[in-house]
Amino acid sequence: MDQERADQSFTASTAVEAGRVVVTIGGEVDMSTADAMFEAATRDATAATTLDLRGVTFFDSAAIHALLRLAERYGDGLTVLASPQVRRVLEISGLATQPWLKG
């Protein structure tokens, strides 16, 4: 499923692969789009998700909050693939050593 918001710099697509939701996010994740990222990752009833943020160019505190909500929901079932911009925000936030952050 593809989802485009009024903010054209945000995209979210989801697919279910072997019982895992794979969510690919592009553009900016901020106060106006963080909930859409969370909803895309929780729409299907699965125990695991991969959040591919390699196409994200901006990530703010609302996005961090949504990511922490996903970590709480999925626990060990969460995998996050981060762009350099997202990784830098997570480093500044003290979250770069989380087990769900890969690559």
Rank of each mutant, 00 (worst) to 15 (best):
T79V: 13
A41S: 12
V29W: 06
W100L: 14
W100G: 13
A15M: 11
G27C: 02
G75V: 07
E72K: 13
R43K: 09
A15N: 08
M37I: 04
R43M: 05
E28N: 06
F59Y: 03
A66R: 01
G19Y: 02
S83Y: 09
H65C: 05
G77E: 05
P99T: 13
L95A: 07
L51E: 09
L67G: 02
V89P: 01
T42Y: 05
T49I: 06
G75F: 10
F58E: 02
R20F: 06
I92N: 05
D60H: 03
A41V: 04
G75L: 09
A66C: 03
G77C: 05
D7R: 13
D2H: 12
H65G: 12
I25F: 09
E91V: 15
L68F: 05
R73Y: 11
K102S: 15
M1H: 14
I64F: 02
G94Y: 14
V16N: 06
R20C: 13
V80Y: 11
S93M: 03
Q3N: 10
T24G: 07
G55L: 08
I64R: 01
S93C: 04
G94N: 13
A66K: 01
L81P: 07
R87Q: 13
P84M: 09
D44L: 12
V22Y: 11
R73W: 03
R87H: 14
A6N: 09
I25E: 07
D52Q: 05
V80W: 10
D2T: 12
A48H: 08
L68T: 12
D76Q: 15
Q85R: 15
P84I: 03
G55E: 10
Q85D: 10
V21E: 06
D44K: 13
S32R: 10
